[in-house]
């Protein structure tokens, strides 16, 4: 067997930190940020029956981070009896988005076609966003399951963005930017985002300028949202692990630097 190298010990340490903290029953106190509260307050303020378009703009690989975010949003929206339309602008997110909507809908006894629908995937996201601004039924003549648009009772009277309260992009990449550039700028539809933490700095300028109404980001955002809606989920469960991993990485950086400077000193000597 190949001898373990330095990096293997770092990985083993990291694995131990995650596993041990995930097994511990302790949950750290979470204080929701202003951005998360803004999103929560907005969904809370919507009257029953308002229609949200949730765009699953992510790939399957980011599911572990996206799932807690999306489930927190879906649970809140279903608990408020809002009508949800799901779409996907990336093919890999199509099945994931549908699965998440079904999972949350089951918990709230929501029925397909009346309380929520899933329209599926459209390629060429710019064309898809622009096309929906003109006509959603022409962009999606059928839903994901192959049922005609006009056969789904929930979609009666929904023609374009004017009939929606908000578009919420659940994204792991830069697709939310296109919602801002084409959906918000051209059709003035309100755009909000639930995004992976890696995209926060990309979307912060849009949030500051008001082009994105509200943003919830990363596992921490999911934990904050779960706290606001009073439902425990993966976000809250992962917070202790994430904090511990951050401390572990900081410790490794300090140790690495100490070793580096010590070796440098020895080299001079």
């Amino acid at each position: 067997m190949k001898q373990l190298q330095q990096r293997h010990y770092v990985f083993i340490g990291l694995a131990l930190v995650v596993i041990v903290t995930m097994l511990l029953p302790y949950r750290p106190e979470i204080v929701p940020s202003a951005e998360t509260r803004r999103m929560h307050e907005y969904i809370d303020s919507l009257p029953e029956g308002s229609v949200l378009l949730i765009s699953f703009d992510h790939e399957a690989s980011s599911l572990p981070e996206i799932k807690p975010l999306a489930l927190a949003l879906l649970r809140h929206a279903f608990s408020k009896r809002l009508k949800l339309i799901g779409i996907a602008l990336l093919p890999e997110g199509t099945g994931v988005g549908y699965g998440l909507m079904r999972e949350a809908a089951r918990e709230y006894d929501m029925s397909y076609g009346e309380d929520f629908v899933y329209l599926g995937f459209r390629p060429q996201y710019v064309a898809a966003i622009l096309s929906m601004g003109e006509s959603i039924p022409e962009t999606f003549p059928e839903d994901y399951l192959g049922q005609a648009y006009d056969q789904l009772p929930m979609l009666n009277g929904i023609e374009n963005y004017d009939d929606l309260a908000c578009v919420i992009s659940v994204a792991d990449g830069s697709l939310t930017t296109h919602w801002v550039e084409y959906g918000h700028a051209r059709y003035r539809v309100k755009v909000s985002a639930f995004v992976a933490a890696s995209m926060v700095t990309t979307y912060d300028p849009y949030l500051a300028s008001g082009q994105i109404y509200a943003m919830v980001s990363g596992l921490r955002g999911a934990a904050e949202y779960e706290k606001l809606i009073g439902i425990g989920g993966s976000g809250a469960r992962g917070m202790l692990a994430q904090t511990s991993m951050h401390l572990y990485v900081i410790l490794m950086i300090i140790i690495g630097n100490l070793i580096y400077f010590r070796q440098k000193q020895r080299g001079r000597g």
Binding site: V18, I19, M22, L63, E65
Partner: peptide, 12 residues
């Protein structure tokens, strides 16, 4: 942070 969240999700 994002990659760590992915790892946490898989470990969970």
């Amino acid at each position: 942070m994002s990659r760590m969240s992915t790892l946490i999700g898989r470990v969970e």
